[in-house]
Structures are given as C-alpha cells and as structure tokens.
Amino acid sequence: MLFWLELLASSLLVMGGLFILIGALGMVKLPDFYTRLHAPTKATTLGIGCILVASMGLHALRSDALTVHELVISLFLFITAPVSAYMVAKGALQRRTPFVENTLNQNLSRDILRRQAPGSQDKHGS
C-alpha cells in the first residue's frame, strides 16, 4: 500500500517536473512574445499543480495529518496565472511588440488597441 502511494506521488512529481521543463523549453524556442505567453500560463501552472498535489499526499503519508498549505498555494496560482498573463499581454500590445510573420489576423491588433469591435471604421481617421 505504502509502496504504491509512493509510486503514485513519484510519478506525479516527475510529470510535474517534465511539464515545468517543457514550459521553460517553450519559453526559449517559441518564435514571438505572444506564443511564448502560452508556455508559462499553461505548462508551468499544471506542472506546479502536480508537484503540490504530490507534496500534499507525501505530507499526509509522513505525519498522518492532512496539511492543506499546498492547496492554498495552488489555488492562488491558478487564480493569478490568467490575470498576470492578461495584464502582460495587454501591456505587450500597447508596446507594439511584433508578431511572428505567419500570425493570422494581425490587423486585429489595431482594433484591440482602440478597444473597438473588429473591422469597425475608426472615427478619428488614421
């Protein structure tokens, strides 16, 4: 029983570590800022989720008391990750950070900056 629980925790840990590594790899190799944004918001969040769940299980195993510190941390990260991604993306657009060439609908960024509906004529003239 104990052996299987440890095995489960270990595989969760390894999976979490691999996800974090893949997220970091994506950060280095993806072509532009906007695609790089996807790596940390998803891969890293799940990676750390795995590690925290494993840590919770191991703690319960060792001390017979269920501590839920890790749950608080992962909840906090899951709530804040999309918020910070949104803020950084918005800031990057304001700064006119370039897109990679083959991005679809790049002209939409003009509408996003003006916060108008897609394709609507701008009133002030360009």
Binding site: H38, Y86, A89
Partner: peptide, 29 residues
Amino acid sequence: ASTISLTPGTVSVDFSADMKWLYIHALHV
C-alpha cells in the same frame, strides 16, 4: 477570460470597450 487563458492554446488579450468582443491569441489555429 480566465478560463480561456487556462485552457487549450488560447490566452485572452483584451475586451472591446463596449464589452461585446473578446480578443484572444491562439497558439495554433
């Protein structure tokens, strides 16, 4: 917007001022 940011290959970027459009960036379309 948060759900979209956390799930398949999409990140929400901004709303239009009248809140009728949500702009997202997708990793692969």
